[in-house]
Design a protein around this nucleic acid. Structure first.
Lengths: 104, 104
DNA sequence: TGTTCATATCAATATTTTTTGATTTGAGGT
DNA sequence: ACCTCAAATCAAAAAATATTGATATGAACA
């Protein structure tokens, strides 16, 4: 099983407003970094910082073509994230064990 | 539509290792705060801080009974989080618009 | 009312994350 | 080899988040 630090990585990607704005741009199709940068209130190095976090999370994939890098949403990353979210937040029916004060 | 700050709230709850450890405890059933505290490397006020974040995210619900508060996973919160995750990371087929340099 | 116990809140500090500007790397083109 | 441009990396500063200890709140009960 992955460590909590490892699990947290995917969700960390999703808890910054600027990264959510980047994801929104990618929902409409593949975009290269310079295009993603335009509408954002970010410097080039700031965008690079956020793209690294998004790619490390698996939610976004980058594809190099010459000097440009094209980013797009990853279906595999999305599916993995949903599975992880469910794994972390769904009761485990085989290990039910309310604390004594919770059993009225 | 919710703001990015609002959306980020759910995922912020999931990107701290201590909060993931708390969720793990809740997967096995309802627990009161003092029981949740025991195995954690946290002070009472630290636990209270994290429980507030988890409850505000909607993933956890608290139920007061006398002086105790019993916490449990929220099915509604989980469903909402999954929907939000999909909404943020699924391509929007009606607005496809690759950047010109992405169309080879 | 006064006491106890569980939890919340507050203010200060510590830690982590993000931003910035400068520099570096690396792919093309001349 | 040199130049240009896109992107990554680095170190320092700024901003946000987490932790701590002290104090406050609020429920139960004598």
């Amino acid at each position: 099983m992955e460590t909590y630090q490892e699990s947290a990585k995917v969700f960390k990607a999703l808890c910054d407003p600027k990264r959510l704005a980047i994801l929104k741009q990618l929902r409409s199709g593949e975009k290269c970094a310079c295009v993603l940068l335009e509408p954002m209130d970010l410097t080039q190095s700031g965008l690079s910082y956020h793209m690294k976090i998004l790619c490390d999370s698996g939610l976004v994939e980058g594809r190099q073509e010459g000097k440009w890098i094209h980013y797009r949403l990853s279906e595999a990353g999305r599916n993995k994230a949903v599975k992880l979210l469910l794994a972390l937040t769904t009761p485990d029916i085989v290990s039910q064990n309310n604390c004594s004060s919770c059993d009225k």
